[in-house]
Design a protein around this nucleic acid. Structure first.
Length: 376
DNA sequence: CCCTTCACG
DNA sequence: ACGTACGTGAAGGGT
């Protein structure tokens, strides 16, 4: 804080985008990259660009990331430990999202940090009880597999059936050569495109994501559709059907109504078109993991009764029985007695991979450890 | 209470 | 010319 104030030459509230804007844009004369509804944006993307011309933006970014972790997680989570159970309990909301996902609140345990080293140290504080371990089981590239299934694109389906690294394969198809020979840079670009397709991105969005010009981004997208023509057909048909019916559906028939797709305001209609593309993919993944959770719960209940997992019945506080403790969209987290982990992993794998049959394999990655960071 | 920002999938 | 990748929840600022 003192360093930031010294560089700025003025004491101000770093947490106020308004005051920060006055320092960056008025006092220091740095360029305004983007506007918000109410003023000049100072978000991460903007500060990263400004960091090329002044030392202050990088300091503010560092401050922000530390403040976020401290204020949202470090200072709060310890106060939320229930004295009866010794655990932090969240609420899972079943009727909040538009796609069929769960959401988590009070506290949100679906956004615990993981992407930075310091973030992972916060995640380490979620631990298993003595004698138990945490098992994390997450669907591998589930949304791309679902898009392969929904679109039936031959190339995409074959790639998954051959068990290939899908981002490397996409890079090879787009930039030439063998999948084994793609550079890190090419794979990164292919990954951004694979994700972008699921979100209904345009050339502008991709150009921003990859720091390339819009013309080149447009060429990338066209090239993608040349290689995966079935995907383009599916996207077009899905939007067309949404316009006709006024809604889209997941594989299990969950509907999202999109009346705005008929809007004469083009940006409003295009927003609805992106929802029409993303919802069947994200929503089908939500259908799948919910079905898996039910199948796993039934199995755990059954094992509890027949003592395959637990030798004792009717314990009010189950000790030796595996517990499903969290769902994070494509991941399930279990707390399990050490000696029963192998059996649990085999059962969870089978249920998660087999609960909905797709035309491509469904793959689940499993990790285990004394804490959530280790298991993940 | 809304806005901006940023944590996650 | 315009706005521009999906879905969430929480914190702090400012009104």
């Amino acid at each position: 804080m003192r360093r930031i104030w010294a560089i700025a030459g003025v004491e101000f509230n770093i947490n106020s985008p308004k005051q920060l804007g006055e320092v960056l844009f008025d006092k220091l004369g740095l360029p305004v990259i983007r506007r918000t509804k109410t003023g000049r944006s100072t978000d991460e993307d903007v500060l990263t660009k400004l960091a090329a011309s002044h030392e202050l933006p990088a300091e503010v970014l560092a401050w922000r990331s530390l403040a976020k972790l401290k204020n949202t997680y470090l200072d709060v989570l310890p106060t939320l430990v229930n004295p009866e159970t010794g655990r932090v309990h969240t609420s899972f909301n079943q009727t909040v999202t538009a796609t069929g996902r769960l959401s988590s609140s009070d506290p949100n345990l679906q956004n615990i940090p993981v992407r930075t080293e310091l973030g992972r140290r916060i995640r380490e504080s979620f631990t298993a009880a003595p004698g138990k371990i945490l098992v994390s089981a997450d669907y591998s590239q589930i949304e791309l597999r679902i898009m392969a299934h929904l679109s039936g694109d031959a190339e995409l389906c074959d790639s998954f059936r051959r068990g290939e690294d899908i981002h490397a394969r996409t890079a090879a198809l787009m930039f030439g050569g063998e999948a084994a020979a793609v550079t890190g840079e090419q794979r990164r670009a292919a990954k951004a495109i694979n994700f972008g397709i699921i979100y209904g991105m345009g050339a502008y969005g991709l150009s921003q994501q990859l720091s390339i010009d819009q013309k080149q981004a447009k060429e990338f997208i066209e090239r993608y559709f040349e290689r995966y023509p079935g995907v383009r057909v599916w996207l077009d048909r899905t939007i067309e059907e949404a316009r006709r019916a006024g809604y889209v559906e997941t594989l299990l028939g969950r509907r999202r109504y999109l009346p705005e797709i008929a809007s004469t305001n083009r940006s409003v209609a295009q927003f609805a078109e992106r929802m029409a593309i993303n919802t069947p993919v994200q929503g089908t993944a939500a259908d799948m993991i919910k079905q898996a959770m039910l199948a796993i719960d039934r199995e755990l209940e059954k094992e509890k009764g027949t003592d395959s997992f637990s030798p004792r019945k009717n314990r009010s506080v189950p000790f030796s029985q595996p517990l499903m403790v969290l769902q994070i969209h494509d991941e399930l987290l279990f707390e399990v007695p050490e000696g029963e982990a192998d059996r649990l992993v085999a059962m969870v794998r089978e249920k998660m991979e087999g609960v909905m049959r797709l035309s491509v394999p469904v793959k689940v990655d499993v990790g285990r450890g004394a804490n959530w960071a280790e298991a993940h």
